[in-house]
Structure formats: C-alpha cells, structure tokens
C-alpha cells in the first residue's frame, strides 16, 4: 500500500525526501555507472510485476516484491525502487507526489535488508536458497508494513488505529509473498542461477569500454 498525499505531516514528508535522497545517492554509488541503464530496465520489469494481482479468497492483493527486488538487485535495489515509485506516482497516482520519499524508504529499505540477508543465507544448495527466499519474501513485507505503520503513526496518536490496521492487513500479503518469492527462487535456481548469485548492477562486463 502506498501512502498518498496529505497523510504525513509536512516535516516528515520532507525529511523522508532528504533521507531518501541520501540512500539513493549511496545506492547509485554502489551501482556500476555502466549498469545504470540495466537497472532502469530491471525497474520496468519490477513495475510490471507489482501490477500482478494474486487472488486471496474473495478479493485479490497485489505483490509488493521488496524481497524479490532486493534479491535480484542487491544494493541497486533502492535506486530501482525510487525510480519505479516515481513512475507509479506519475502514471497511476499510486503513492502521492509529496510522499514519494516516504514510499521509497518504506519499500527500499526492506529491499536492501532482504538483498543483504539473502546473499548471506542462500548457501549453496537449492533447498537453502528457497528457504532463504521464503524468509526474505516475508521479511520484506513485514519490514515495509512496519515502516508504513511508523510513518502513519508520525501523524499523531489519531493515526494509531490506521497504523495497526495497515500492519494487520499486511499479514496475508506476507504469507503470499513468502510463497511466491520461495517458488521464484526455486525457479531461477534451476533456470538461471546466475541471477541469484550476482545481483545486477555489480555484474561483470563483457563489452569493451569506451571512455568519454
């Protein structure tokens, strides 16, 4: 769920912008300059993936995928998420213009944590990678929900109920996302394991470089 305009106190919104910009700068620094176009393209695919709805009883939920982005992009994940959310806000109004920084932190920080954790946990066997996938899938959503709750609560005690509800609403998404991430890690480890081993953005270079 994205925070819309007008919910956060202005100081918090501005503060998130500033903090978000700092993390984006760090994320860009950690991405090889030549790989920025690749990260941009990957962002487009995550954007499309986040439009996928999964049925849940009578309703359906859309995937948040911070875990998956973290696994596939590593430190570049935050950059990708910031770019993706900018586009979502510009095109769909998913997430307010003034809440962009907050939304980026909410999805991006979990992605960074998940990416790091997955690399540490994935081990060498497929089973272990799948288990790590399930863990980061759930953790990504849990962290995002937690940050969302905190951000909402920054609006004052009045928002406590909404924050609690938002947290609760993410519980089923956590389960679904854990399963999808685990299955996807299993799929990729059979089909294209290099995507899991080496996050995009830190990739090797086959082409000859030309210095400007």
């Amino acid at each position: 769920m994205h925070i819309s305009d007008g919910v956060l106190p202005t100081q918090v919104a501005v503060g998130c912008y500033v903090l978000g910009a700092v993390v984006v700068a760090w994320s860009t620094y950690r991405t090889r300059g030549d790989d920025l176009p690749k990260v941009a393209l990957a962002t487009a695919s995550f954007f499309v993936a986040s439009l996928v709805h999964v049925p849940l009883g009578p309703t359906s939920v859309h995937l948040l995928i911070p875990g998956i982005v973290g696994v596939l992009l590593g430190p570049s994940a935050f950059l990708a998420i910031a770019v993706g959310l900018t586009l979502q806000s510009m095109l769909f109004q998913f997430g307010g213009l003034t809440a962009l920084g907050a939304n980026a932190l909410m999805m991006g920080i979990p992605a960074l944590v998940c990416g790091r954790l997955f690399q540490a946990l994935r081990g060498s066997s497929r089973q272990r990678a799948v288990a790590a996938g399930a863990l980061v899938g759930a953790l990504g959503v849990a962290l995002a929900a937690l940050i969302l709750g905190l951000l909402l609560y920054s609006g004052g005690e009045d928002f406590l109920g909404v924050a609690q509800l938002a947290l609760a609403a993410h519980l089923p998404v956590m389960v679904i996302e854990a399963a999808v991430t685990a299955f996807m890690v299993g799929f990729l480890s059979r089909v294209k394991p290099e995507l899991l081993e080496l996050p995009l953005g830190s990739g090797r270079q086959d082409a000859l470089g030309v210095k400007a």
Binding site: K38, L41, G186, L200
Partner: peptide, 12 residues
C-alpha cells in the same frame, strides 16, 4: 512465481 521468474529472466 514461474511467470514472474520468466518475466525477470526475459527482461534481464
């Protein structure tokens, strides 16, 4: 999950 995995493989 397969579908998303394939989407990512193709786009990567």
């Amino acid at each position: 999950a397969n579908f998303l995995g394939m989407l990512f493989v193709r786009s990567f």
